[in-house]
Nucleic acid binder design. Structure first.
Lengths: 352, 352
DNA sequence: TAGGCGCATAATAGCGCTACGATAAGTTTT
DNA sequence: AAAACTTATCGTAGCGCTATTATGCGCCTA
């Protein structure tokens, strides 16, 4: 029946209709072509004021929201920056991510977040999905990654920033500071206060390479600077918490008989140690001096106020943003340095 | 010259060539059509084992990374969940975001993060860009949003979850607890300890509506439960920090002569108050009882250990994830409740 | 007044993938 | 054995936008 129809006259495919307002709708209402709308949205100065006004009106009348997914596909690079940190619960990274997010949002970039939980395999999986978004940049924490992760990133051609650590060769760019130097600063400070039986209290150092580097910098400096000094490094396998700090102090008192100074890999640990000293009625700093790392919220207000090393998480965030935005705006950021040392600052308070 | 050529023989457009491996490359190598590859990647069971194996081999040989941007465009919904919190520096939200991110990542969803800094206009801007990604869901904090924000979200048809608060009508779904009830619990607890001159110490309550609700719940309960009690609410305009806690306690001591109990809108404030008491040699809980909110890292270990109300940030994260995933997997989640009360738990420790 | 140059705007071809229908086999029913 | 199903695979039209080239128009120069 009705031969010649079945093959010629195919039903036009029906596709799930997005009810969304598209750029075409805006163009129609503003009486211009879609290209002009697109151009206006990206570079308003390039279209005539009259047309621009018309388009702006249409956009607001229709409540047009541009589809960044389509834009990203067409432009072959999406306005997304993927950030991978070990844990967002960690105040250090929360600070950096917060700053970075604000800086990038101001330039119209979105932040996609992932946590590796200090696992290289998890990080690799995150990098893989991150690259699926054709991101404008990828931000990683630290310089230690699986070989595959490095290969993937290099092959992708996407700008990569490694943050919170410098010292080894980065994949592409790096912003941070030297962790061994932080450890060394802490050791020097304790030694300068006349302490000779010192210990480094760290948590999760089997996975947290940066904390481990602070510990070894501390131990090396103690060994070299003062031959008479004894130095122990004590690790808590769990997360860096206040409770871990209390536990670690107890362990340190057992292991180091005349303990008179401790450096902690994190201010939370230092706070725990401070509490434990209070419980045991050990005078700080008279009998034991305590130095932390992080300069967290409570560090200036606790009793005694905590001497600590501030790593400037927000400065790191700002510099990472600058590097990313610089790389996007100009094609040749070769002139600028691609490794930025944000340094560290020792803040002396009452606990030493 | 050479008429008929200039118009006919146009040079084919050259487009910035993505060097990336595409699905087509995989299909070619595996000797199947792109559709089959796509099908295999989404539902491996729907493809014959033989073809599947061939495709898997091709994927790994070529190091194929699927382009989620293209996928999102074609499928009209991207595998992205947009989360908007007031601040990721806040440990409460960090906890929720962390849990949520893990749960969603397990289902192949990415998290896009934004912070509103407690500003409704900023939140609106974030929602607008969030919707540009055609996200699988949008997660907001609290129930207070600008009218435009609600309109945008309703119009978009995207599932919306509001978290960390219930009590009013949500846009779509909500997971959280009642803040006035938290305040009331705190008041009841202090009253049960025989305290009659009590105060609520909060920070940034002009913007943080949830903290303000805890305060008013506290004041209402105090008024109703004990006529003899006096109750003050004291606000610090800045952020909720340990230092603010010390300041607030000082103010409370001035304003309330016989102060014998305080509730704090945040454990950081409570810790600051505890430190201030220690500095002034005020016995806690003997002279002043202290109850906090949040059950943060240090709350169990500080001196005295802090009585507090735990809001279960990770439970909220889990439930939000469940709601989102449920909504994606089944079309009709009508049966299930769309408002989940995660409740709160009062943890009594030494400070009361 | 013809030729050339700029500028604003338009037309068009994909970006890489998914969804939809079509098709080609193989299997059961009548 | 033909019809009616299954099941696995394929072909292709977009998804909404951007990049690139093409076009039209006004203006200056000679």
């Amino acid at each position: 029946m009705d031969a010649g129809n079945s093959s010629q006259n195919r039903v036009p495919r029906k596709r799930r209709k997005m009810q969304r307002v598209t750029m075409m709708d805006v163009a129609k209402l503003a009486q211009v072509s879609p290209s002009t709308v697109s151009l206006y949205l990206r570079k308003p100065a390039a279209v005539s004021p009259a047309a621009g006004q018309e388009i702006a009106r249409a956009v607001s009348t229709l409540g047009y929201v541009p589809n960044l997914v389509a834009g990203g596909l067409a432009a072959a690079s999406s306005k997304v920056v993927s950030i991978i940190v070990p844990s967002i619960r960690n105040a250090f990274f929360a600070e950096t991510v917060s700053t970075l997010q604000s800086e990038l949002a101001a330039e119209g970039l979105q932040v996609i977040l992932g946590h590796s939980e200090y696992g290289e395999d998890q990080e690799e999986a995150l990098v893989r999905t991150a690259l699926s978004w054709a991101p404008a940049a990828v931000v990683l924490t630290g310089l230690s990654h699986s070989a595959e992760t490095c290969k993937l990133l290099r092959a992708s051609g996407v700008p990569v920033v490694e943050m919170w650590e410098i010292g080894a060769k980065p994949i592409d760019m790096a912003v941070g500071f030297s962790h061994p130097q932080v450890g060394a600063s802490a050791a020097r400070h304790l030694l300068s206060k006349g302490r000779r039986s010192i210990a480094f209290l760290g948590a999760r150092m089997q996975e947290d390479h940066r904390a481990a580097k602070r510990a070894s910098g501390f131990a090396d400096e103690a060994k070299h600077a003062a031959e008479t000094a004894t130095c122990e490094v004590i690790n808590h396998p769990g997360a860096a918490t206040v409770e871990a700090g209390s536990l670690l102090l107890s362990r340190a008192l057992q292991q180091v008989p005349d303990l008179d100074g401790i450096a902690c890999s994190n201010d939370l640990i230092a706070l725990g140690a401070l509490f434990e000293c209070q419980r045991r009625e050990i005078a700080v700093p008279d009998r034991i001096a305590v130095i932390g790392f992080g300069d967290l919220d409570f560090s200036a207000s606790c009793i005694p106020s905590l001497t600590t090393i501030r790593p400037s998480g927000d400065l790191i965030g700002k510099e990472v943003a600058r590097l990313i935005l610089g790389g996007i705006h100009s094609e040749h950021p070769e002139g600028a340095s691609r490794i930025i040392d944000t340094g560290h600052v020792l803040i002396e308070r009452r606990s030493t």
